[in-house]
């Protein structure tokens, strides 16, 4: 065993974050407890929130219509609190495959999917997803036939996006809860398909 720990000096942004946080607390603008509670809230939110929305849309055609016309209102209908999130839901069909990226930073529907994966924030994904989406999707293991239109949504301003994947075959009669179990985070970003029913049977 090496005589070294894994200590590394703080990075620029880590140092900035700590300095800013300490100043805000020192000046009485926020308390440590408020910061902790916010971080805890953020950690608690995960893709199962988005999965509930998708499963509901799969089982209720009227809900799906409302979801596609106003994503924010449709989420609130399910009791999902999504403050300040202007949600645009884009639907995958046999003719169209949608995928989401934020080329400028890392805009992501955190209120529905939780904290974004590191690759979503990587320069590689952000620069290539608009330029050669089919090659990037293939690297995720998703090969899209040329007869299917690929639509990439660059989340550049105030909207946030969620892909409504196609309901897998062989799930007729399934409950919303069971369906939600097939809806993966990546399928709602558009870089994968939902799990197939065999996987959870």
């Amino acid at each position: 065993m090496k005589d070294q720990g894994n200590y590394r000096p703080l990075s620029y942004f880590q140092l900035m974050e700590i300095s800013l946080r300490e100043l805000l607390v020192e000046k009485g603008i926020v308390t440590d407890a408020q910061v902790d509670a916010e971080v805890e809230d953020m950690r608690r939110r995960g893709p199962e929130r988005g999965a509930r929305v998708v499963a509901k849309a799969w089982t209720d055609p009227d809900y799906k219509k409302r979801l596609l016309s106003n994503g924010t209102v449709a989420c609130e209908e399910l009791g999902l609190d999504i403050p300040a999130l202007k949600l645009v839901v884009v639907e995958n069909t046999p003719e169209v495959h949608n995928a989401i990226v934020c080329t400028l930073c890392s805009c992501y529907p955190r209120m529905l999917l939780g904290i974004p994966p590191d690759w979503y924030k990587s320069r590689n994904y952000r620069s290539r997803m608009v330029r050669e989406p089919r090659a990037v999707l293939a690297e995720f293991g998703l090969v899209i036939g040329k007869e299917i239109q690929v639509r990439v949504h660059d989340s550049t301003a105030d909207m946030r996006y969620l892909v409504l994947p196609m309901r897998p075959r062989g799930t007729e009669g399934w409950s919303e809860d069971r369906l939600a179990g097939l809806v993966t985070r990546d399928s709602m970003i558009g870089v994968a398909l939902p799990d197939s029913p065999g996987k959870t049977a």
């Binding site: 239109q149 690929v150 639509r151």
Partner: peptide
Amino acid sequence: LYRVRFRQNEVWPDYRGSDSDLLEVE
């Protein structure tokens, strides 16, 4: 604020994909 739809093969002259592929940007 608008969502504007572009044709991928117009944005990238060497775009390799389907001619119907789209890019939507706010």
